[in-house]
Structure formats: structure tokens, C-alpha cells
Computed example of a mutant assay.
Amino acid sequence: MPVQASSVESPVSLSITQRPRRLRRTGTLRRLVRENTLGVEDLIYPLFVTEGQDLEQEVPSMPGCYRYSLDRLLTEVHTVWQLGIGAIALFPLIDDHKKDNAGTESYNPQGLVPRAIKAIKEACPEILVIADVALDPYSSEGHDGIVANGQILNDETVAVLVKQALMQAEAGADFVAPSDMMDGRIGAIRRALDAEGWINVGILAYSAKYASAYYGPFRDALDSAPKFGDKKTYQMDGANGREALKEVALDICEGADMVMVKPALAYLDIICRIRSHTNLPVVAYNVSGEYAMVKAAAARGWIDEEKVVRETLISMKRAGADLILTYFAKDIAQQLHTKRIEF
């Protein structure tokens, strides 16, 4: 039955033809005209792997996230694959005695990461494995590059990153993901992969990675905090936007298949600008600090975690991200399996 008009005179002319609220009237109608959606196919799930057996160690600053020994990791991979998540990003916790300034463990063919990649691809061949390319988990100095006299060496680091990427490709990685922000590393890795016959191994470039305060919990998870100084001589200045477009352009010219913005939430404008700058897939990294803040506030009852997470992730899609690398991926996938997600 039509709603009866009020006897109170409306300040809006009754001849108005556009009433945007008509398209918000019911949940079904809102879903029908929704501009952006969040699906399980949009998600990449980051996983932490560690040595040992039967280990599932919760990261204190990241409730609900765990460091898994390889046997437990395979169970988690199978679970998320069954939920419809098609890609995982792998990050290792390396024993201190295996770390050195040159990051030599990063390209050890019998190391933790290649063993994990091989086991994952054997257990779940169709899931996409994205392997992080950087020295900080392997460095005794906690930096993404080789250190000399307090400086981070660029070209010497790139030579090691190439070895690391080749080792990961040999192990079965579908994508290598250079997260170090060394100049020229995308081109060097692409040339090396192609020369060795790994033409189908893709590169997900951390193209706009900022020197951010949002990375703290991740560094706790991998014990990879820098032992001195900060990372501002190689990661980007948070005040800069045009520089991100330059970095993206360089990475595309050097052979990147996808480009990433990290962090996501404080850099939605950068995602938007990059989206208008390239037709390549744009990835947003919903980083550890963003995750931890939501978890901390939800634990105190200050926010509705599910609703805040959905609103946060859809903001990244709205800004232009095609894919989202997020620690909430499993939670979102479970929600999608059990109920229709509402915003």
C-alpha cells in the first residue's frame, strides 16, 4: 500500500523527479544497485610460517593470527582453499642463527620458504602462492638490504633479491613479490626469471610502499624490526603522492604484472590515483597495524568488528583496488559462506 502523504506541507516540491532514497529502500534493492562488491575472489591471505612441528603460535599483537609450523600451515591452507580463497602470501620467521647481513638464507634452496612452497603446491596445487622477496626476515640488521657503514646498499641487495626470486620460482611460487623498495629490482628479477625459463612466474610489485608506523605487529610476528635507524631511505615518504605514480610507472616498465599500495587505509588516495594511472591489477595491503587496531577496539567493545572490517575493505575496493591482501581474509570468507554480507 502506498505511504500516505503527510498533512504537513513538505519543503520539497512535490514535482521533484529525482529521489535517490528510492534506490535505498530495501536490502535487495541496495544490493542490486551497489557500485562495489567484496567477494572471496578479491582476497589474498597472508600466512606466517616457522620451523618446528605441530606449532600454532598466536602473534600477541595480532590476535587471531598465528605462526604455523609447516604441518599446521598445510591444514590452514586447505581450510582457506575450501572457503574459496585462491591466493596466499607467505612470510617466514627465520631462526636468528641463520640470519646475517647478506641475507644468504633467503636463497637457500633447502630453506624454510622453498620447503613450504613445495609442500603447499603438492598438497593444494591450484592455490596461488605469492612469495615475499626481501631481506629483512633474513637480515641480522633487520633491514631490507645489505648494510655497509650504516647505509643500505642498493645494487648489491638487488643481486641477492634476484637469487631469492629464482629460488622461489624453482620451488613452485606462482608470484614473487619484491617488498624491499630497492631501485631497479623489478627489471633485474624479470630478466633473470625469463633467462632461466620462468616466463610464467608473475611479479607482484610493492610499488608504493611507504615508511609507515603501521608495520609494528608484522615485525613482531617475524622478529624483523630494524636493529638501527629506520627505513626512510628506501621506503616512501608518507607525505608524497606523485612519487607513487613514478614508482608504479617504473615498475610497469620493468615488467611488473600487478602493483601494490602498502599500507592501504591511510593511503586510499594513492590507490585511487594509481588506479587511474594503470590498467594492471592494483593490490591494497591491509597491513598488520590496521588489523591490530580493529582487533584492539573490538576486544574492548568499542566497535562492531565485522561491520568495521567490511566497511574498511569495501573502502579499498571503492578507491580502486582489485585485490586486497588482508589478515581478515579468512573471517570474510567464512562470513560469505554462512550469510549474505551487508554494508
Rank of each mutant, 00 (worst) to 15 (best):
M1P: 11
V3G: 04
V8D: 04
V8S: 10
R21T: 06
V33Q: 03
N36Y: 12
T37A: 13
E41I: 04
Q53N: 12
E56K: 15
M62L: 15
R67G: 13
Y68A: 06
L70H: 05
L73C: 08
L73N: 01
V80Q: 04
L83K: 01
L83Q: 11
K98G: 00
A102Q: 09
N108A: 08
Q110H: 14
I117Y: 05
A123R: 10
I127G: 03
I130R: 04
L135V: 12
D136V: 14
G145V: 11
L153M: 15
N154E: 10
N154A: 10
T157S: 15
A159H: 05
A165I: 07
A171E: 06
A173W: 06
V176D: 08
S179H: 07
G184C: 03
L204E: 07
A205I: 09
A211C: 14
Y215D: 00
G216M: 01
D223E: 08
A225L: 14
K227W: 01
Y234S: 08
D237M: 05
D237S: 14
A249K: 13
C253H: 12
E254W: 02
A266L: 10
R273L: 12
Y285T: 07
Y285G: 01
D304G: 02
K317G: 00
A319G: 07
E342N: 09
